[in-house]
Write a protein that binds this DNA or RNA. Structure first.
Lengths: 344, 344
DNA sequence: TAGAACTATGTTAGCGCTAACATGGTAGCG
DNA sequence: CGCTACCATGTTAGCGCTAACATAGTTCTA
């Protein structure tokens, strides 16, 4: 009764749920009017609109967004691809994106590459298949195939985190400069025997960029720039291990420049357990400006990166494009800030 | 040439991209065969399948998943609704879900309620509109309207985090019992003057459940169970403030049971800055078992909750249902574990 | 007051894909 | 050898919605 008559003999997966047609019948209008009442209310008489909205409630209509997307060839999905969910940094960027997009009625499709470019390419394919309105991806490094897929795509593409030669839009910061900045700070504080501790820099290549900046400055000062590379991306435990390895490999080291705050804080807490005085016996510096590092004693010297802001700015720039406005800035440098703590 | 003839006079949003029909023509088969070659390869002759796959590459076909979902009335989307992205706890649950679902070809649709039940209801509506294959939501508390929407829905519904009277499936732990467990531990260690520090327990009602358990034990022992409630959910800074407030309001307090590890660790680090000895002058306990608390000195006494496991188990149970298997367990208790540290 | 301009609603034709049914060919069986 | 069974492929008819065009009524303009 409440359901459509099956067409003669052929059965069809009838989805039981009320459709726009049911709403239209209940309101005594055509389905296109019901559609307009919901999507472009200003194009419908107020009286009619009210009748339609009542009908929606009465029949318990939930719009089929898939059908709508197919018909209109656009989905209000924003694809977001990050290399990891285990890293607070990406979570905060996602948060900035999500807050901005969700309030404008866009839905985020989250993809996690686990630092695998092939996986990224596969995700991009899938997301293109969902007719996303835009795509945000962390970083500028992609596989060949991924690049091809993206360059044949006609919607906004936003690459966040670092700055460089982007496909389309780009919001990020200069990691090499950040590395230089911290290295300069350490030199200014009088340290000469400085070790960089990275972690999986083939995957976390932004840490590699910071290391490159670090090296430039140290070499410019005529100093060695020794490196210890850990096999865990960023954790307190790995940081503790890093401190041990530095002390073993470079007994004369007086300062450690860590690739991120997790490592640095882990080392700092470990130093306390060992009875090492920070920074007297060993100076420790990080990168990211996580709350964690700002609550330990001594407070961690680090570089604050505006992650949530980065997500927000990226989202706003995309929204401008989606609203048909001309691009204001294809590339935006969100900058960073040295947080001088007591650990150096 | 590469495009469809527009139908007489009527123009149509022609999406430029190659469609399955183009692939089929290039491979010299009908489009349903091309569809089968991609989706149910075992139902197509190997030779034909190869021709189709070559054609896919040749024309640069990207499947339109929206059209596919509409036709098949199912989308391989899993809706996941959490109250916050700022809280590591939910991120880890999401990670467990994502790892399990992504490997099976499902895409997560992430929604963030900001602890607002109306917002949750709106998200549920939207997600139902996307014909999700299943819905996962954090917690058992929902608005009336949300409950109605869910009960009229015919796909798996999974409620995670706490245990109780669920709509459908339920994976979580007993927060009241966790609260009792920690309270008992504190009593066993000899503490008698114990303050609970919560934060926004109207929103983080699971912390309220733990507080309830805490109260039961203390009252059972004939003790008072004073409460300090903070207005920030969980941060190191709020924990530090919490310690100050306890010392001011309850100078005789000898132990603090914090609602979570962020607060507890913040208090612990703050205690060190103040020169308070933990646990001699003040014992501190938390909840969650975050790595953070396990790397400070003294190591934090807390309760380990298996968050990623919770996500994984939830996903696996849903997948069983989606694979048509009979429900094994509608409700699963993932349990928890007291991590005795040196802070009590 | 004719006709342009605008408003409110309706009709038609798909969006790109797949479920359901149909068809022809090849084994398999007693 | 006529039968069923199965395999590989094709034809048809939508899934539920909205863009494009159409139509009738109303207001504005010169």
């Amino acid at each position: 009764m409440s359901n459509h008559e099956p067409s003669r003999t052929r059965r069809r997966r009838g989805s039981a749920h009320p459709t726009l047609k049911d709403v239209a019948e209940a309101a005594g209008v055509s389905s296109i009017t019901a559609s307009r009442a919901l999507n472009t209310p200003e194009r419908v008489n107020e009286e009619t609109r009210k009748r339609v909205l009542q009908a929606v409630d009465r029949v318990g209509y939930v719009p089929n967004l898939i059908a709508g997307s197919l018909a209109s060839a656009s989905s209000r999905f924003i694809a977001v691809i990050v290399p990891s969910l285990a890293n607070t940094v990406f979570i905060e960027v996602i948060k900035g994106l999500q807050d901005t997009f969700e309030s404008r009625g866009y839905q985020i499709l989250l993809g996690n590459t686990d630092y695998d470019l092939q996986r990224e390419q596969q995700l991009v394919r899938t997301f293109l298949g969902w007719s996303c309105s835009a795509l945000v991806t962390a970083g500028l490094r992609h596989s060949e195939g991924c690049r091809t897929l993206l360059s044949n795509w006609d919607k906004p593409i936003m690459e966040v985190m670092e700055l460089g030669k982007a496909q389309d839009l780009n919001v990020g910061l200069d990691h090499e400069e950040a590395g230089r900045c911290m290295a300069r700070h350490l030199l200014e504080r009088g340290y000469r025997s400085i070790v960089y501790v990275g972690a999986c820099m083939d995957r976390d290549y932004r840490a590699g960029m910071r290391f490159a900046g670090h090296c430039q400055v140290l070499e410019g000062a005529g100093l060695e720039a020794p490196l210890i590379e850990l096999d865990q991306l960023g954790s307190l435990a790995a940081g503790a291990a890093g401190l041990d390895r530095v002390r073993e490999a470079f007994p004369s080291a007086r300062a450690i420049h860590f690739a991120n705050d997790d490592l640095a804080t882990g080392a700092l807490l470990h130093a306390q357990r060992l009875g090492l005085r920070v920074p007297v016996d060993m100076a420790i510096a990080g990168f990211n400006g996580l709350p964690l590092g700002q609550h330990v004693t001594p407070r961690l010297t680090t570089i604050q990166s505006p992650r949530e802001t980065m997500g927000r700015l990226a989202a706003e720039e995309i929204l401008r494009r989606l609203d048909g406005k001309r691009v204001t800035r294809r590339q935006q440098d969100v900058g960073f800030q040295l947080l001088g703590g007591q650990s150096t």
